[in-house]
Design a protein around this nucleic acid. Structure first.
Lengths: 238, 238
DNA sequence: CGGGATCTTGAGCCCGCTCAAACACTGTGG
DNA sequence: CCACAGTGTTTGAGCGGGCTCAAGATCCCG
């Protein structure tokens, strides 16, 4: 009965730091399927969540889709042995809540104060029946989710601990600070470990190795600086 | 430069054994999203493939969707270091070929003689614009793919070699012989290894262990008998 | 400052990998 | 009928990366 990565007793009202705002889309080129949601925007309702608060839980009715407006969330699956698997980190612009059946099969929780838009599945379906093009666009959104899951599968299945950590750093650099080499991580080391299927110790050790090799700097645990992005990218064959 | 799991020089016309036919759907209850394709059946074109023959390759234009009528196929991704990742085994009734962009990002090959229906994406889109309900059903199909990818992620990310092999055996028993304890595996040990992210040696050893524990029998390498299904299911927490 | 949570480092172990060899099955040619 | 090659499968010996267990260091907020 190992209980490694149990969710820490969540402080529900600990509103705090790290108000991560919507990254302004590269205006002009609007090719992202995410922009589908602009079409159905009128159907959306925005809510605020505190750090650690759940948006929905496994078993809840899957009546809505969601989009992150600001802040960061994580999708979690609690395993039978008490460990936790983080499916993805949800950043502003990300859409989530797709389900086959009528109930959610994962938990989603805010890891920083967050604003999240809720879209009624029923209402979206009505919209789809009016606007033919919308169906194809939503399909693209779903395919994109499939594609991401497969990419993640390759990382977790085939990469070493070091490659996983580097993949993670590069992913976060791309998503959190596209035009900068300094990133402020909204998640804890335990979150990273549960995301990469490693132990917290291995994540720490690997980051220390990267620091020692002068590939990154770590001014504080949440603060990462990419010193040699090219070498990092070479390590994961990007 | 390790080149473990390169595809063997494929004998293109070696039509042979194992003609796996469509498993008759449990008639009456028709809740599977797969049945969507019955609606668009008229748009489909059936082709035959030989053992080892490619249906499409990475980089090919993604102009169609596909459904397996009979036989078995595998989706493959060749990695930079020469290893191979098998994404899934495609059995009769399975649908594949979903892509975000205009080109395929994986290879799909028949591993036994197979018949496969091809649906033009453009034509399906036209159908969707006429039949509103179809869009929602196709969406379900896409969500189902997402769901499978996530389940697979958990297997590869969190399970031990033994748990993976048992998961595989139970999956194949469920899909290939739902009403029977004897299964005829259409794939090689190497395929299984590339599917489970293990080495061929580990797959063999694990199967020998299971044999020694009297949980399965292996009359021939392709021939599996589940002796104690309950114990097997306990091992993976099903 | 004090105390709890989070992060970091160290020592030793074990599972799955690597390398190597033997075995089983099938088809071919003499 | 056997010899032989080729492919796929099985088993053995030893190594190493990431995990476990344990202790310290650091951060954060009162």
């Amino acid at each position: 009965m190992q209980a490694t990565a149990v969710v820490t007793s969540r402080p529900p009202m600990k509103a705090a730091a790290l108000p991560i705002a919507r990254v302004p889309k590269p205006s002009g080129t609007v090719h992202s399927p995410h922009d589908v949601l602009r079409t159905i925007q009128p159907v959306g309702v925005v809510s605020s969540y505190d750090r650690g608060q759940g948006i929905f839980r496994e078993g809840d009715g899957a009546t809505h889709w969601y989009e992150v407006v600001s802040g960061v969330a994580r999708t979690c699956k609690l395993l039978a042995d008490g460990r936790r698997q983080i499916g993805e980190f949800l950043l502003p612009g990300d859409v989530f809540g797709f389900e086959v059946g009528d109930t959610h099969t994962i938990d989603v929780e805010a890891i920083s104060p967050a604003a999240i838009t809720r879209f009624s599945r029923a209402r979206v379906r009505l919209l789809v029946e009016c606007e033919a093009g919308l169906a194809t666009q939503l399909q693209q959104l779903a395919f994109e989710t499939v594609s991401k899951a497969h990419a993640r599968l390759l990382v977790l299945a085939r990469q070493t601990a070091q490659e996983r950590v580097v993949s993670f750093i590069l992913e976060m650099a791309r998503r959190l600070a596209p035009h900068d080499d300094t990133i402020l991580l909204p998640m804890t080391r335990q979150d990273i470990a549960d995301y990469l299927c490693l132990t917290i110790e291995t994540v720490c050790r690997t980051m220390s190795d990267l620091k020692r090799e002068r590939l990154i700097r770590v001014p504080s645990p949440q603060h990462l600086v990419l010193v040699d992005r090219d070498s990092l990218e070479d390590m994961v064959g990007t």
